[in-house]
Design a protein around this nucleic acid. Sequence first.
RNA 1: GGCCCGGUAGCUCAGCUGGAUAGAGCACCAGCCUUCUAAGCUGGGGGUCAUUGGUUCGAAUCCAAUCCGGGUCACCA
Length: 598
Amino acid sequence: MTLASRIKQEAQSALKQLYPDVTIELSMIGVNQTKPEFSGDYNIVLFPFLKLLRQKPDVIGKLLGDKLCEGSDLFGGYEIVSGFLNLSIKDSFWVQYLTANYTNSGYGLKENSRRVMVEYSSPNTNKPLHFGHLRNIFLGAAVSQILKNDGNEVIKANLINDRGIHICKSMIAWQQYGKGATPESTGTKGDHLVGDYYVKFNDAYKAEVAALIDSGVSEKIAEKEAPLMRGAQDMLRKWEAGDKEVRDLWHTMNGWVYKGFDKTYDKLGISFDKLYYESDTYLLGKQLVEEGLNKGVLFKKEDGSVWVDLKDDGLDEKLLLRGDGTSVYMTQDLGTAKLKYDDYHLDQSVYVIADEQNYHMQVLKAILKKMGEPCADGIHHLSYGMVELPTGRMKSREGTVVDADDMVAEMVRLAGEQTEQSGKTEGFTPEELSTLYETIGLGALKFYLLRVDPKKKMIFDPKESIDLHGFTATFIQYAHARICSILRKEHVPQQPDTNIFSGFRQTAELSLMERKIILALEEYTMILQDAANELNPSAVCNYCFQLAQLFNTFYADHSISKAESEEKKQLRLMIIIMTASVLRHGMNLLGIRLPEKM
RNA sequence: GGCCCGGUAGCUCAGCUGGAUAGAGCACCAGCCUUCUAAGCUGGGGGUCAUUGGUUCGAAUCCAAUCCGGGUCACCA
């Protein structure tokens, strides 16, 4: 149990004893950390009790304070300031907490039998990953880890959008302009090569449309009749009919893309437990729609198209099958949702998808619910804001996208540059240095994209690139490296598996910073809990940064090696061991490694 | 226009299940390396928490309205 909740419960039972006739709900008891300008560690707000207890805050505060402190191993004293009961936690409690926990390597792990799927990344196979995908990927991976750490069984899934008109666009452009180019013949990463032809399609198509308009055709007709567009549509029909030549080309080009993606995922340290391909699943929804029709949940219009009426849910009518019987996006998603559920019997299915699809996801869930599908309840849209440039949204057709591979390379380069500038490369082999630069560069990138509340959109200015100072992974990595340096010097293991200071006895009072850090360490499990409940990795980012900040302040005026006594030295070693361990644990959830030297 | 989301320091963001004088980072200014890593630390300036009204002992936080920005409302995905 966390300290804050223990304080709440003790306060409740103390009030029960003091005022047996009155029931005070746990939710009425506000426990907060005391602000630095007041004495004490935690406070209880007295205002909510005034009416119920019919007494002044000073009176209630005194009774409650006395009761709580009486014979307590936890509370050492209190002070009442304008309606707040400021409670001091005994040094002995903090020390006991520290000695009992500093050898931990796991935090917040609990039994939780839920089975959860997290779908993220979900790329199209017509272009390489860009900066916006990175937010999605890091979010999905971090949320998976956070949920797993919370005791859930987590299945990391990737739904690959490998078919459709957009895929045919790069295929036809390659056919017409590629001259047999392959990743090998051009030395280009496969996903980039295919992406180049997607861009080529759009350029050439635009020119075709312009030419048609010049020759007197209306814009609408021109867009439909441009030869490239007709070619792409023709190709899609052939693909659906299973045309061998088209399928072969499709296999080949997607193969190039997958090789490229694998390289990128590998570099990012990202993996999946289950891959779904839309080419396998895109027909699945149709059967579901048939069943819905039979059940009378869906209806057919005169032209044969199938619809669902969601007006009772505050939504609209939605098309599920075209008049010609072909499926739409929603149809596919219905099928995939059911497939996921049938595959794993999920308690929860998390979709990491940008907020532009909020409505779509709402409709998806509503339809499944209406059809009585058991998968409906578990569907949860982890909606995140899109990454924008200072000039607005990234547009692949306008060439304003920031490529993911380029971005990673740039960050690693920056990490190397700064390390060399500050002259910290001594004692590293070239291999160690390149690992270090990747750890720093990639860490900075991940942290930058995870530190903001997912639901908020974010603006990224490539010109300013990403800072390695302040609220960054680098800051946290640096604090960790400093701790490791001290531990090396003192010949103390980073992660002791037994209590190496079993003889420790506390006699000296804790300093302000010593107790502040232990207090922060104690909060960690609660932070993990919140992050898991909210599916919010930014909570972990904020916490780790604050902890590193506390350590740096502590470090600035507390010597460990030359502590004033052996007792203080041991105490501080335990503090920094646990601090480093918590930082590693938290950052590991975010997919960020912490170097021992930097 | 309907629905959804956002608006906090010059910039990027915390804080939002109501609690004390609203916090960080960047940028700017002034200090701190003969002492465990200065990618750090200390201090300083900088705010009408979009606006107005309401609920409350107490509102950045809850409610309503308004303004501004974005998203979405396809037989696209």
